[in-house]
């Protein structure tokens, strides 16, 4: 009996949905996809930005790419940024948000405090951290190390320590971002659930495990996926933290996007940069699809 009516409701809903999407789809097609396909096309050419010819050279750029040791180095550096940066910032962001959420008062002050690094200009922050990392007696970190009887560290001047040293301020700034979104998620959970759980005698841990985390799932999915993309695209921090933006010493901190940027705008090798962009795109797409699938099936 209800079928015809619900059919028409579904029908109008669908028409509304398409109406809502008309302008955005047009926008994405012209402003986003067209340039993206343009980049895909460029990866098959030898274009160098300033020249008029774009010669089709097939897969030569890709072949060169796979033989380029710097490409592999930047790829593994990028991996390090993601594998260390994301879990640490995600976990710190959650712990802070969880605790700030449970404060009796002063939430706003704490949020502002932890959010300040995120809203500060990266260029200025990079300079400050570079001073912090200087050798003693200028560098504060090394001064502290010496005063507690530990040996000095090279930090940005070391091939092994430079990458974590750049990651630290990145996480430092990123925590504020994670914190805000986690808080928005936590605030979306109705107090009623907790009140009901308390009546049932559930302790804090139970509440966290059986109420907070499950209900935060859309937030967590969002943060993991966007976080992965953000760390895979890490760029500005390295450009400003490593000297003259070279991603050194000896390419030990250079991420893929910095290499893309250098190839495109310093060497003017647009074709090569475009090929790397395609690879980066495919990597991110693959990871995102897997993440979406895994996190959906966990239900």
């Amino acid at each position: 009996m209800k079928r015809p009516q619900s059919y028409t409701i579904e029908h109008t809903k669908r028409i509304w949905a398409y109406t809502f999407l008309v302008v955005p789809v047009l926008f994405y097609l012209t402003i986003r996809f067209y340039p993206t396909f343009y980049a895909f096309f460029l990866s098959l050419t030898d274009w160098d930005i300033v020249s008029r010819d774009k010669n089709f050279i097939g897969l030569t750029n890709y072949r060169n790419l796979f033989q380029d040791p710097i490409f592999w180095k930047t790829l593994s550096n990028t991996g390090f940024y993601v594998l260390y940066g994301l879990p640490i910032s995600l976990l710190s962001g959650f712990i802070l948000a969880y605790n700030i959420d449970r404060l009796k008062k002063g939430e706003g002050v704490f949020k502002a405090l932890y959010f300040l690094p995120y809203i500060t200009s990266m260029v200025a922050i990079a300079w400050v951290w570079r001073w912090l990392y200087q050798p003693a007696p200028i560098g504060v970190f090394n001064k502290i190390l010496i005063s507690i009887g530990l040996p000095q560290q090279k930090f940005l001047f070391s091939q092994t320590q430079a990458l974590p040293s750049i990651l630290a301020p990145t996480i430092w700034a990123d925590v504020g971002f994670q914190l805000i979104i986690f808080l928005a998620g936590l605030k979306g959970i109705s107090r009623q659930y907790y009140e009901a759980a308390e009546i049932d005698g559930a302790d804090n841990w139970d509440q966290l495990r059986y109420i907070t985390l499950p209900l935060l799932k859309p937030t967590i999915v969002f943060l993991i996926i966007t976080g992965t993309i953000r760390y895979l695209r890490i760029f500005t921090q390295v450009l400003n933290m490593s000297y003259q933006g070279e991603g050194g010493p000896l390419n030990s901190t250079k991420p893929l996007v910095l290499y893309i940027y250098h190839s495109a705008f310093q060497q003017f090798d647009m074709g090569y940069a475009a090929a790397m962009t395609v690879i980066l795109f495919l990597i991110i797409l693959m990871i995102t699809l897997i993440q979406l699938k895994v996190m959906k099936s966990e239900d």
Binding site: Y28, R32, P35, Y38, I229, R233, Y261, I284, L285
Partner: peptide, 18 residues
Amino acid sequence: ILILSTMMIPTEMLVIPW
């Protein structure tokens, strides 16, 4: 997925066509 994928291209590569 397509809208998500717009996050996967570095802005630096889009600047010239724009």
